[in-house]
Design a protein around this nucleic acid. Sequence first.
DNA 1: CAGATGACCGCAG
DNA 2: TCTGCGGCCATCT
Length: 115
Amino acid sequence: MVKDYKTDKGKVDENFCRDVYEIVKNIPEGKVCTYGIIARLIGKPQASRMVGRALKHLPESVNLPCHRVVNATGRLVPGWNEQSLLLNDEKVCFKSNGCVDMSLSLWDYEVILLK
DNA sequence: CAGATGACCGCAG
DNA sequence: TCTGCGGCCATCT
């Protein structure tokens, strides 16, 4: 197992990372989500960085569409060129500069709140 | 223990 | 939407 998300204090972000995985897994194809939104859904709008860090530490064994998670500006993950290919296959709208068109491809996360 | 780093966010221009 | 500045939080050095 990975040695992440655990500390000696016993009080860990197990519910935090778990919720992150659940949310990311619920992202439909052709849609993307931002770290801030995910962090807010969990209840920690300041933990946006932790979301990104958690995904990076995430092993490939886990089946998560982390490529559908981008930052607020629609910027893709630096150093991960494959992400653009995956999103392109998802029929996600891109801009000329290579950023995702948030207005069109942003996941309507409100549906999860209504449910 | 303090400083630097990072798959970031919000605000202002 | 993009850039610059400050802030937040956990990990690394």
